[in-house]
Amino acid sequence: MRCAEFDREQVLTQAMEAFRTNGYAKTTMQDLVAATGLHPGSLYAAFGNKRGLLLEAVDHYIAMRSQSRLDLLAGHSPLKGIHVYLLHMVDEMLRGTCLVTRAVMELDQDEELHQRLCRIHSNLEADLNQALTDAAAAGEIPANADIPTLTAYLLVGVQGLVTYSQCRNDPALLQAVVGQLLAGLTVTR
């Protein structure tokens, strides 16, 4: 028996978008067939079941988001990189729901998925912590800044942007919130 050949990354991106749009519970196997162009047998053979495809799609989403974040943070001064990243988050959320947030809301009892989702937050925390450390070294924020607290502040801000953008699709307001988040980084205590 010959194995079906397909571009795994492309299939994962297409499945990721289906789950992101409809959520796990409302995404049917027919939706996944339509999104990926693969036959049900090929999806089952490659991923085991719908949950297996979701887990791999979440891993793919995490990898894509992590690389995008690192690229945005690295392309500028540290504080400007954070600004560009936050504005990118606003743009992304205005285009659709965050797969991680959607999965957390739907599948909070799934320990394996929970561990994957915690990984994206750990990676984001490490990246923001490094950007803030670099910003302090570059004199963009006070040298005595409490980096762990500012990192948590940004993490809460990012999650708030993700959630709030689902209720208020207002780019100007969301960008103003990003400006306020940045202003909070330079306040000396």
Rank of each mutant, 00 (worst) to 15 (best):
H83G: 09
T151K: 09
R69Y: 00
K26N: 13
C98V: 00
T101S: 10
R102F: 06
L174K: 02
R102P: 00
G184W: 09
Y164D: 02
Q67W: 12
E112H: 14
A63W: 00
C167D: 00
R8C: 10
M64W: 14
R2H: 05
K50A: 05
M93S: 12
T149P: 00
T27V: 02
Y85D: 04
A25M: 01
N144V: 12
H83Q: 10
A103K: 04
V158G: 08
L86D: 01
L70A: 08
V177Y: 12
T21Y: 01
E111R: 10
R2N: 02
A136Y: 01
P148S: 03
P78W: 01
E92R: 15
A46K: 02
H121P: 00
N129S: 08
I82C: 04
D108K: 11
L132Q: 01
D91S: 11
E140R: 02
D71P: 00
L107K: 04
L94H: 03
R116N: 01
M16Q: 12
K50P: 13
E92P: 06
T28D: 04
I82L: 15
R2G: 01
Q30R: 10
V90L: 03
L70D: 14
G23S: 12
V100H: 03
H39R: 05
Q175G: 06
P142R: 07
L43H: 04
N49W: 06
H39K: 06
T149S: 05
A136H: 03
S165T: 15
A4P: 12
A138G: 04
K80D: 10
V90I: 03
G52T: 08
R95A: 08
A183M: 12
A18V: 15
L182N: 03
I147H: 00
I147N: 01
N22W: 08
E9F: 10
R168Y: 09
S66R: 14
D59C: 07
H60L: 06
R65E: 15
G179P: 00
R116P: 01
Q130I: 05
E125T: 09
T97W: 09
R102G: 13
T163L: 15
L150R: 14
L54S: 06
L53A: 07
A152T: 13
L79C: 01
G96F: 06
L43M: 12
R189F: 05
D127A: 06
A126K: 13
V11R: 05
Q67T: 13
N49K: 02
V84K: 02
L55N: 12
L154T: 10
R65A: 10
L173P: 00
L113Q: 05
A74E: 08
R119F: 03
H39I: 01
S77N: 05
I120G: 04
G41R: 02
A145Y: 06
Q166G: 13
E92T: 15
R65G: 06
C118S: 07
N49S: 07
L73K: 12
Q130N: 07
Y61L: 09
Q175T: 09
L117E: 08
C98L: 01
L174D: 00
G48I: 09
Q109C: 09
P148M: 04
H39N: 07
